[in-house]
Design a binder for these strands. Structure first.
Lengths: 262, 262
DNA sequence: CGAATAGTGTCTTTGAGACAATATAGC
DNA sequence: GCTATATTGTCTCAAAGACACTATTCG
């Protein structure tokens, strides 16, 4: 290898020969699943819709734009802390929700205000937590958009690219990890789980509820992914929240089978 | 949601009330697979070893330290361009090698020089490209370490954490994507592919070469992951590089089956 | 023929998927 | 009895994995 360019650059840095970034914001792609009640003759699962949180910006050059919520990080906080802080400021959520660093974006000119990269985060939040927050402030300029609608908007900066990447990441993770739990209560029925997966990843289709059930519960590869919720006397617990026919409740155990292509 | 904190912060930013980061470096975890020839009575596959590139730093406070290669990004370049530039400066590689953003690191005090986050990259490079580069400069302070040895060193900053995350990412990706190709020639035998996977992910074990072969070639789920290399007359091409028994050559097609846990 | 790898055959068990059937409980 | 969901049964075919066997070619 060649002689150390790192050391050379350190000297430059010390003499302040080079500019420094003008700030390091974090931007958050906050996804939630909105429930859309159906009018049916008996109890049924509400439809679900994947939505993302955007805030309105008034730009003097670009007219009305929508942007991912975000804000500048401080020297005294970690990037994760900044993301949590922003989440709290925008949504009033102060819980341990799913939040995950996605990627850092910079290209010359991405922000007209200067040399401003952005550390993008993905957060998955159950709609109940957001409804509570929304009640606090109706005059807010933050709004949830179904993802197709979000992509039809005039988004600020490179936020369309970030949103595209975030959506792709969420879809991958939805199939390869147990992040579905972010959109589910602690105890849920198999229909709820299946619906979450199908809503987030439209290309996923179990087609057959019965086969989905067997795959998840009866195959050794996935043993321990889910466990039935048991009552004090060891009997399975049922829910009739979404159907007259009582449905067994399950929870994630913490074990995740490894997904692989080979 | 509450009233727009982003707008409030923008004003702060414009009045330069807050500090800005002192620089935005990229650091690269460059992995390669080293070949270790075995002395056998007939041709055989060399052993492989996963190694990472580190450079020597002389710190007045910490003594001799090893660090991930890296350097400060410029306003005029993207982060990816910076990573490629650093890669070229350290290894003289100017090819389209596998390079991928991992994560951005910052916590107060991570770099004693100031408010300096780091955008970490992972790069996977075939050893042949590095050998060529190393020949250019023997007095370099850059060196490849087998990963166990790297973890035994006194690494600068939070580079141990970065390396840990990078390794985990590479292992995940090795099983869920076709990045194995970064460590393989364009045309390879099934034994080579299997060896790459087993070396990078020790927990992966096909146990049975025969079954590995059938899985990859005969299952519909993976149809099209690999294709045999064919000569002009449509006959499969064989290699005797690593065995007297000619082995069929394969290449990746570009298709990747989706890995999922459900 | 021995060494080291390549590739096939066979058999068993498990899993995937299609499809059907029955069950539940409120209205 | 109708509705929407829950759950089990059956059958077929695909895939996984264990294990053994043959093939290749150089030295």
């Amino acid at each position: 290898m060649n002689t150390s360019p790192l050391r050379a650059k350190r000297i430059h840095f010390r003499t302040k020969k080079y500019r420094s970034p003008d700030g390091l914001p974090t931007d958050i792609c906050l996804f939630t699943l909105l429930s859309i009640p159906r009018q049916t003759k008996t109890k049924s699962l509400p439809l679900k819709q994947l939505a993302v949180l955007l805030i309105k910006r008034k730009s003097n050059t670009f007219g009305e734009q929508w942007a991912l919520p975000g804000g500048f990080s401080h020297e005294s906080e970690t990037l994760d802390e900044c993301a949590y802080r922003e989440l709290k400021e925008e949504t009033n959520i102060d819980r341990d929700v799913h939040i995950e660093q996605l990627k850092t974006y910079y290209k010359p000119g991405r922000d007209p205000r200067g040399w401003i990269p952005s550390v993008a985060y993905v957060s998955l939040v159950h709609e109940d937590l957001l409804k509570h927050a929304q009640a606090n402030d109706d005059a807010s300029d933050a709004q949830l958009f179904p993802i197709e609608e979000a992509f039809a908007l005039n988004l600020a900066f490179d936020h369309r690219e970030i949103l595209t990447d975030a959506l792709q990441r969420v879809r991958e993770q939805m199939l390869q990890t147990t992040i579905a739990k972010a959109f589910l209560p602690d105890e849920f029925t198999l229909s709820e789980l299946l619906q979450v997966i199908e809503t987030v990843v439209p290309s996923f289709s179990a087609k057959d509820r019965g086969n989905f059930e067997r795959r998840l519960l009866a195959t050794t590869r996935r043993q321990g992914l889910l466990e039935p919720v048991l009552s004090a006397d060891g009997q399975p617990v049922y829910s009739t929240e979404f159907s007259n026919s009582p449905a067994k409740l399950y929870r994630f155990t913490g074990f995740t089978p490894t997904a692989m292509i080979y």
